[in-house]
Design a protein around this nucleic acid. Structure first.
Length: 279
DNA sequence: AACAGTTTCAACCGCCGGGGA
DNA sequence: CTCCCCGGCGGTTGAAACTGT
């Protein structure tokens, strides 16, 4: 015999949800909160299995979900993250809190895949595994050459970071709060922080660049996306601790992987309570 | 208008991991 | 340690909507 079904199939309704069913589910969750899905069909009288209830809530009824009309910025972020994380849609969705993993997955499969095929050779993209991507598209030049490249290209990274940090233009939609919270910690720990919000302070600070330790992986954006594992910081001076309220921060910056002897622009995934270094 | 082919996306399926007994 | 249950995940399906002829 095969694997038993997740729930009793007899009398379980399948297919699209009706507005009446939605109302019942939403009312129940408003009263009891999401969770304990096993008990939901029994307590509500819905002829649906627990999984179906959970899916309907998380993918459709949950408040704060944005549907359709993906912005260009969201598209770019999904493409970056897909290259970084693979088809880990739930992980990708954590960077776009208003989107569900299912929505992102569908959008990827129906729109972005095709879009990418148009801009790049499809076979080139899909035929490569991650290690091939790493070895093929990270520009491999020696440290001195990389340092020269850093000097010219670091300016771009600084601009992106300063835009996010000082002009409150988040790189991903929900990051403003995180960044400002994170910045509070920075201001607290740094000298002469009275005028932290003023123009003069911003101007002074705009010369700083922020890099992150504890990287999961690093992505090179040029000429195509790929990974450097175990990337380490190339240059760093003063240190500060990230407040534990920051869930994940995503930045484009420039890093140097000392093990691989390579550098590249990076999409940085910063875990909880990690260390930020400034130089 | 009618039909066929294509696209979209909500929902399902089966697998997996975490946690409790 | 093992087993079982539950929730979460990614891949897939199929009905509905859309487009072309």
């Amino acid at each position: 015999m095969g694997r038993p079904p997740c729930c009793d199939k007899v009398g379980v309704k399948k297919g699209p949800w009706t507005p009446e069913e939605d109302i019942i589910l939403v009312s129940y969750i408003q009263e009891h909160g999401p969770g304990n899905w096993k008990s939901v069909p029994h307590n509500t009288g819905l002829m649906r299995c627990s999984k179906s209830c959970r899916l309907r809530w998380t993918n459709y009824l949950r408040p704060g979900i944005k549907r359709g009309n993906f912005t260009e910025q969201e598209e770019k972020l999904i493409i970056h993250l897909q290259a970084l994380l693979g088809n880990r849609w739930a992980a990708i969705a954590s960077y776009l809190p208003e989107r569900t993993d299912n929505d992102i997955k569908n959008y990827w499969n129906t729109h972005l895949k095709k879009k990418l095929r148009k801009t790049q050779s499809c076979s080139e993209l899909e035929g490569m595994n991650k290690s091939e991507l790493s070895s093929n598209s990270i520009p491999c030049f020696p440290k001195d050459q990389w340092e020269r490249r850093l000097q010219t290209d670091i300016h771009t990274a600084k601009l992106a970071l300063n835009e996010a940090l000082y002009q409150e233009k988040p790189i991903y939609a929900s990051s403003t709060e995180n960044i400002s919270r994170w910045l509070q910690g920075w201001m607290k720990n740094s000298p002469s922080n009275e005028n932290a919000g003023s123009n003069s302070e911003s101007t002074r600070r705009s010369t700083d660049t922020v890099l992150f330790k504890g990287l999961d992986s690093v992505v090179d954006f040029e000429p195509s996306m790929s990974e450097i594992s175990d990337a380490s910081l190339f240059q760093a001076e003063s240190k500060l601790e990230v407040e534990d309220t920051v869930p994940l921060v995503l930045f484009e910056t420039w890093l140097f992987d000392e093990n691989a002897g390579q550098g590249g622009a990076a999409l940085v995934d910063m875990p909880l309570g990690d260390t930020v270094e400034l130089f």
